[in-house]
């Protein structure tokens, strides 16, 4: 392993080399310190009921853990991000599997776990073609593992559920890990996570402020059109500003149509991801899909917005800037076997 690769995987000493990384970490720290003060002020002025107040604290505590779990691996290096994404995918698939019942098919779970390992391997190896192939290889494995059991009844159902869970929560989240092949992965990942999480908060706040007609009341009764539009406007503005001044100055992305597409796309498809999970939950008839994050529900309730955005974000940036991670050592491990 040469010095460049080692630096990308484990080089935490340059964690704060990019201004966006410093900015996002400082912003997160400040937000987590200031929000309790706001809670206290709201409490003093008597604007919140007791139940809401307790709920706010529970949520705040969960946010601290979420922030640490997201930011610390990104700062420490690519190896930790890849490992973290693997664990995230496994836990998210587990929540999906328990909610839909596909967890009873243990061979499907084995196939998904093996495919997740393959994704991690492709990212560590920086073998792009293998990474993209894991979509097909994964669903092929899921399709064939239960055939030797000779139980054709329910075959379509178990394979369909397995593929759905794998593609959404394994392959799609795998792109988060794939972004670490680029030397600038820290700011790129942080912009994505910040944009998508703030998008949720923007939608909630503008929805609460404006009210108005519901967006898709039968899927998600809480969401309003005003919230959706507000989120698109605010997220796009944030991405425009951060992109133009901090992340992409002087590159091909630094043109307003590109930044506009990126910002609006993040917001719109972030909300679609949210509604995707709402649809799944509505269909099953459950409110939350887990309880790992008190106040939020399951991991998926928090990370649902990333399901569609992450691959789009990666491919759009690759389209405009050229493939992410270009120029880095490719096929680090497989090269030793067959150069």
């Amino acid at each position: 392993m040469n010095a460049v690769i080692a630096e990308r995987f484990f080089g935490y000493s340059h964690a704060f080399a990019h201004p966006l990384t410093c900015g996002v970490v400082a912003f997160l720290g400040a937000a987590l310190v200031i929000t309790p003060l706001i809670f206290l002020v709201l409490r003093r002025t008597g604007n919140v009921a007791d139940a809401t107040y307790t709920e706010l604290w529970v949520r705040w505590r969960s946010w601290i853990w979420i922030s640490i779990a997201l930011v610390v691996p990104i700062l420490l290096g690519a190896a930790w991000v890849i490992m973290g994404v693997g664990v995230l995918s496994l836990l998210c698939y587990r929540e999906f599997a328990r909610a839909t019942g596909i967890f009873r098919e243990k061979m499907i779970s084995v196939a998904v776990a093996v495919s997740l390992l393959l994704i991690s391997f492709a990212v560590i190896d920086n073998y792009l073609r293998l990474f993209f192939a894991t979509a097909v290889l994964g669903i092929a494995l899921i399709a064939v593992v239960t055939i030797p059991q000779d139980r054709p009844e329910g075959f379509i159902q178990r394979v369909a559920l397995g593929m759905m869970g794998y593609l959404f929560f394994g392959y799609s989240f795998g792109y988060l890990a794939l972004m670490t092949t680029d030397p600038l992965y820290r700011p790129l990942l942080l912009l994505l996570l910040l944009g998508v999480e703030l998008n949720d908060i923007f939608a909630y706040c503008s929805g609460r402020l404006c009210g108005g007609p519901k967006l898709v009341p039968r899927t998600s009764p809480g969401k309003t059109c005003a919230g959706a539009i507000g989120a698109v406007v605010l997220t796009t503005a944030m991405v425009l500003i951060l992109g133009h001044f901090v992340l992409f100055p002087g590159t091909l992305m630094d043109r307003w149509p590109m930044l506009l597409i990126l910002g609006a796309g993040m917001s719109i498809f972030g909300q679609f991801g949210d509604l995707l999970l709402s649809s799944i939950k509505r269909d099953i008839g459950v409110k939350d899909i887990g309880n790992l994050l008190p106040g939020h529900g399951g991991l998926l309730d928090r990370f649902d917005s990333l399901v569609i955005v992450t691959p789009l974000y990666y491919h759009f940036l690759s389209l405009v800037l050229g493939p992410l991670g270009h120029g880095q050592a490719e096929r680090i491990i497989t090269n030793m076997i067959s150069p």
């Binding site: 328990r98 909610a99 839909t100 019942g101 596909i102 967890f103 009873r104 009844e153 329910g154 379509i156 159902q157 178990r158 559920l161 099953i284 008839g285 459950v286």
Partner: peptide, 12 residues
């Protein structure tokens, strides 16, 4: 085709 056979975990 087989009717839908998958159900949420009973201890969900």
């Amino acid at each position: 085709m087989t009717d839908w056979i998958f159900h949420t975990a009973r201890d969900f």
